[in-house]
Design a protein around this nucleic acid. Sequence first.
DNA 1: GTAGGGTTAG
Length: 629
Amino acid sequence: MESVQTIIKTLLKNPTQIKSKSQAKQIHAHIVKSFPIFTTTLLSIYSKLNLLPESLLLFNTLPSPPILAWKSIIKCYSSTACFSESLNCFVKMRALGIYPDHNVFPSVLKSCTHLMYFKFGESVHACIIRVGLEFDIFTGNALLSMYSKLQRSSALQVFDESPERMTSDQNESILVSNNNNNKQLDLQMQSVRKVFETMEDRDVVSYNTLILGYAQSNMYNEAMLMIKDMGNANLKPDAFTLSNLLPIVAKHMDVWKGKEIHGYGVRHGFDQNEFITTGLSDMYANCNMVQDSYHLFSSLPKKDIVSWCSIISKHVQNGLFDEGLNLFRQMLTSNIKPVPISISSITPACAHLTTLPLGQQLHGYIIRNHFDKNIFISSSLVHMYAKCGNIKLAKKIFYQMNHHDLVSWTSMIMGCALHGHVHDSITLFEQMETELIRPNSVAFLAVLTACSHGGMVNEGLKFYEKMVKDYKLIPEFEHYACVVDLLGRAGELEAAFGFIKSLRENKRGGLWLPLLAACRVHKNVELGEKIEGYLWNFDDDEEKGAYVLLSNMYFDVGRYEDAGKVRGMMGKKMNGKEPGCSWIGIGNKVHAFISGDGFHSDYDGVIEALDILLQHMEKEGYVADKTCI
DNA sequence: GTAGGGTTAG
C-alpha cells in the first residue's frame, strides 16, 4: 500500500490528477488527520470538482484563510450557482486587505452577471484596473461577457423598472418603440465591441462571447462578419462558435447558412455535440423542415431533457400537435422526468386541438407534480381552457396566479375576446397598463379583436391610435385587418375603404378581403365592385376567397348574371376552393366533417338529427337564407 | 479562472 507521504507528494506535484469524488475524499481523510497544513490544497481540489459542502467544511476550519483558500471558495460558490455567497466572500476577502489575483476575477464577474449587478460589476472592473489585471485574457473575457449580458438586459428591461425607481427619462422611454429597442441594443453592442477592441490579447472565447452578444441582440450581419475576423486572427470556429450562431440563423430562417454550419460541424467532428445537434435541429424546424429536425434528434445517442423539450416544442410550433403529444408520451416512457419547460411546450398542443379532456388530463398531471405555480404553465393553461371553451376555469386560473406578466395578461384578454366578454378584455388591458406592463403588438391585437367582435368601433380605434402614437408600435397585417373588420362590421364601409387606401400599397394586400366580406353583409355592391379592381395583387388563397364573396354578393342582390360570370372566372382560375371542415370531440374521439363528404360512420344518423333540429328551428320562426343557393 | 442548447399569448 502506498504511504500517505507518497500520496501527498504526488498530490503536490499534480493536484489535477484527482478527478473523482471518492479519490478526493480518501485523500481528505488521510491528510486532515495527519497534515492539517494541506487543507488548502485539498480545498482547491474540492473546489475544482465543484464539491461545495466539502469545500466549505475545509474552508471553515481555517482561522485565517490564505489567498488560495479564498479563491477556491469564491470559485466553488460561483460554479454551483451560489452567486451572492461568492460575492460576499469576495467582499470579505477585500475587507481583510487580501489582494485578489487573476484567478479570482472571472468567478466574481460571473456572479455579478448572473445576479445582474451592473454597478457592482463596474466597481469590480475598477478594482481589476487598480491591481493591473485588465489585460489578463480570462479576466478580459469575463468582463466582455458581463458587459454583453448586463448591457443588453438593461437595454431591454427599461420598462420593467418599478414606478418609484423610475426617473423622468425612463418614463419617457416607456414610449420608445420596438425599433428603438433594436437601436438601443445596437448601441450597447457598440460599447461591448469597444471592450473587445481594447483587449490586448483575444482568443476563441473572446470571439465566441462577442458573437453570442451579436446573436442575442439580433445583429445577424455583425455576428457573421465575426467569423471572417476570426479567420483573419488565425482562429478557427469551435463547437461554441457554431452553437452560438445557430439560434440567430434559425431566427432568420437562413437554411443555406444553417447547412453550411452543419457541414462545417460534420467535417470538424462536432456532429456528436449535443449543443450543436439541438441547435441544428431547432434551425431546421424553424425553417419548416421538421423531418430533418427529427432526423437529427433521432441521431442523438443520448437524449437529455433539453433535446426532448426542443423537439416537442418544434413539432407543436409547426402545427404538428398529435406528433408533439406522441413525442411527449415517448419522453415519459423513456424515463425522462418532465421539467416545467416540457409542460409549457406541450400545453399549446391541447389548446390548438381543442380537446378539453386531454387538456384536463394534462392539468391533473401539472397539479400532481406541483408545476402549477410556474408562470409559463399557468399562462398556457389560461389559453388552453379559453380555447377549449371553459372561460370560467381560464379566469379562475388567471386570478389564482401570484403575478402576471405580459403573456399571461394577453392570454386572458384574448380568451375573453374569443368568448365575447368584451368589457372584461378592455378592463384587463387597462389594468395591465396601470400595473406598468408595457403592451406589445400581440396584446394590442387581443384588445382590438375584442373591440371588433363586440362592435365597439370608437374604443377599437382609440386602442389602435394608442398603439401607434403612444407606444410607437408598428402595426402588422393582423392589426390592420382588425381595424378593417371593426369598421366593416359596424357598416362604416367608406371609412374602412379610406383606411386601407391610407396605407402603403404593399401593405394593403389581403385587407380587401375582410372589407369585401363586410360589403356583402351590408349589401354595398358598388364598393364591392370598386374593390374588385384591386384583386390583381391577391395571392391564390385570397383570390379564391374574394371570388366566392363577390359571387355571393351578386346573388344576394339578385344580379345572377354577374354572379355567374364570377363563378365562371373562378372555375378557370382555380381548382376550386378548399372545402370547409369542422369537428367535435366526444369522449376520447374526434369526429370530423368535411363539407359535402358524407364519410362519417353514422352519416345517416347525423342527417336525421339535423332534420329534427331544423324542424324545431322552423317551429320557432327560423327562415333559411337561400339567396346565394 | 471565461463562452453554448429547450418554454407561455397572435
